[in-house]
Design a protein around this nucleic acid. Structure first.
Lengths: 291, 291
DNA sequence: ACAAAAATGTTTTATTATGTTCGAAACGGC
DNA sequence: GCCGTTTCGAACATAATAAAACATTTTTGT
């Protein structure tokens, strides 16, 4: 599953995650070749590394799940970028992240939109998954009484464009996320209460939920404190990954919406922390609960 | 030139054309050739890839089904127009206004960028002209010490994307302008002082400067109070026009940057109100002052 | 060192892509 | 209009690839 993505930032002390260097090197090399030629074939890769076709397919399947390539009969091709984009110069990093795991995020977003249907005051955190959820809510024909709150410029524009009353905090813009940070951002939300908050994050372990940016942690904290329900949107590639800053312990989360069941160890602690887990199924089943 | 040696993903090591590139890669290549030459023939493609004519036909049929080309006897030709890739879905009204008087606004924006070069704290009001000025400042290679302040989401994203420290107010989003309004917006700027504010407006008479939206007037008022220099950006089509709400009297404006000299009566009152008028000339004269 | 877990390899079976044949249709010259 | 030539498309045959199930090896944690 996630065997190759573990070794990001583990401290030498608590290195209880298994790491497999050879496989990782192979995956990196596969992506490299993909960027060189635009496409790769299964048998070529198998010959290059002296491994079986089956293993190559498994590698490709994993890379595809993480949204890094697209499998086709006989091999794989890179993700199609828009043909000759000259128009929009939206920050490339964000664009790229939007494409990553796009399908999973779409499923999560759909599930989230259904989950919060009917709520009147929704807070939107940062990240591409949350933005996808905002889009899904808009497309689902939102309640006209809905009021949205966010410190993400992307979310704000999305919701406002759809005619939804949208409140933003003030603050200093962090360009990477187009998010508002700092004391103003925290204060801006400190006078409201929300029915539900949709949170994004970059990692989760038994310890809790992690994110990259310390600047944004404070706002997330406010959202957590002031929301009746705290919904975390996170695709399964982030399970068992840690990151810079601990946002919340698991017990602070009401509901986790994801695209695949968490690994057994996480599932256990999630259950004991009272987190409701919704798995957004690829089939059109509305929601599958497994608490 | 690229028709003979175009193995798409052959391994550099041993495997020489032992395996074919995935079918999907072939489709991409076919489209590529179509865009180069305008038309392609079945037999040419078959030879290039070393596949049978029948397979080429199946490929072309698939591409035609996707609306990417038009099959003709013996091959295929490209479509007259690329299949409309509409990526940016910024609100049309704003888009349309951006195009209106685009050339005048560009000239004004250039002049404004030169005018505020070196200032450290710039406040940006709303409107397409001000946004154009923000873009011009970014493209001119802004001072890294510059701090920008705005209640316009468009301006905020533009500046932040360029790596400029950008502060936004909070507030309720007004979708038409993607602006932040209300008490939070006013309060958000009430603790700062600015070297200069770039103001937009929709009309001007001897009485003063007008704009459409009452919601935004309060923020403009704050900008005016707290800025050392108050620069109004307004194209000449707005002279002698009034609008919903009076933002400021002429004496509150330090500088007017426009694209053509104001009519005599306005020029007189502007002069007596102590407004410096800069006309951004279409020729490359930097600035022409006529106070 | 051991046992458990994960990764990889192997075999089998299904699926898909490609090649071939051949009659029908389209094209170009007369 | 006729004709010979080329191209097309349907049907079937074959090769290539994918997926599933199981066996084997490697790694990991105790």
């Amino acid at each position: 599953m996630t065997q190759s993505e573990q070794k990001i930032a583990t401290s030498p002390s608590s290195a209880r995650e298994r790491t497999r260097a050879p496989a990782r090197a192979r995956l990196a090399r596969i992506l490299e070749r993909l960027n060189e030629g635009g496409s790769i074939s299964v048998t070529d890769i198998a010959q290059e590394f002296g491994i079986s076709d089956m293993t190559v397919r498994r590698d490709l399947a994993e890379l595809e799940r993480d949204g890094l390539l697209e499998r086709v009969h006989g091999g794989a091709v890179g993700l199609k970028r828009g043909p000759l984009e000259v128009i929009d110069d939206a920050e490339p990093a964000f664009e790229a992240r939007t494409r990553q795991n796009a399908e999973r995020k779409a499923r999560i977003a759909q599930a989230a939109a259904r989950h919060v249907a009917g709520r009147k005051a929704i807070a939107f955190d940062l990240g591409t998954t949350v933005l996808a959820a905002a889009n899904a809510i808009v497309e689902a024909g939102p309640d006209p009484q809905l009021r949205a709150f966010s410190n993400s410029l992307h979310v704000g524009m999305t919701m406002a464009r759809a005619g939804i009353a949208t409140y933003m905090s003030g603050g200093l813009i962090r360009a990477e996320e187009m998010s508002l940070t700092g004391k103003e951002a925290v204060d801006g939300f400190s006078r409201y209460y929300f029915d539900v908050v949709l949170l994004g994050a970059s990692g989760m372990t038994a310890e809790g939920v992690f994110d990259y940016s310390p600047e944004e942690a404070a706002v997330k904290s406010v959202f957590l404190q002031r929301s009746a329900e705290r919904v975390l949107l996170m695709d399964s590639s982030k399970f068992r990954r840690i990151s810079t800053v601990l946002i919340a312990t698991l017990s602070e989360i009401s509901t986790l919406i994801t695209d695949a069941p968490p690994p057994p160890d996480l599932a256990t602690v999630l259950a004991s922390a009272g987190v409701r887990v919704l798995v957004a199924d690829p089939s059109h089943l509305p929601e599958r609960s497994l608490e």
